[in-house]
Amino acid sequence: MVITSLCRSELAEEGLTKAKKGNIIGRQTLALFYATDFADRLERVILPALEGGFIVLSDRYTYTIFARYAVRGISRSWLRKAYGFALIPHLALYLDVDLDSLVRRALKAEKLGFWECGMDLSLSSNLYESFLLYQKQMLREFKKIVKEYNLVSVSSLGSVPEVQDRLRKKVRALLDVKDTEMDARESQEPIVEGASD
């Protein structure tokens, strides 16, 4: 199994992290920088792992970028074309949460940072208000994306084991399908005479 997540590529992690710090980078440029990061991970981590028969777990995918930058006024169709080289995942899980629960979780985890609050959008000078306004837009955008790409929505309400249980069911279902496919393929393979002693 291989795990990958945004801004973790050998090529772009450092440059992207640095560029984000000063808040001087344009939105479109940032969306492209993330595309570079994504492409590097796709071609040098995800694809080789898939070819080797591994399961790849990706913490966020192109959908996050689509939502973040659509909210920031970047053309939706351009974003989709720019990321047109991405692979369609076998399973894309969307952890559904309402704004109220999201706020409480973010407060508990002390996650009201500049980007999480969408402060670059100048929605409000107040951190908390900005967080609410920004996340509301993000949830709305994600809802559209869930429909557009048939993401599998899983409620993230409840305890960690409860949510985990829901997720495992979805993953298990996919693995079963894959196993059946594999069995079918193996049974169809011709037996080569003399191939084994």
Partner: peptide
């Protein structure tokens, strides 16, 4: 480590 895709995107 640049591939044609990442060369293009960067």
């Amino acid at each position: 480590i640049l591939t044609p895709t990442t060369f293009c995107l960067i």
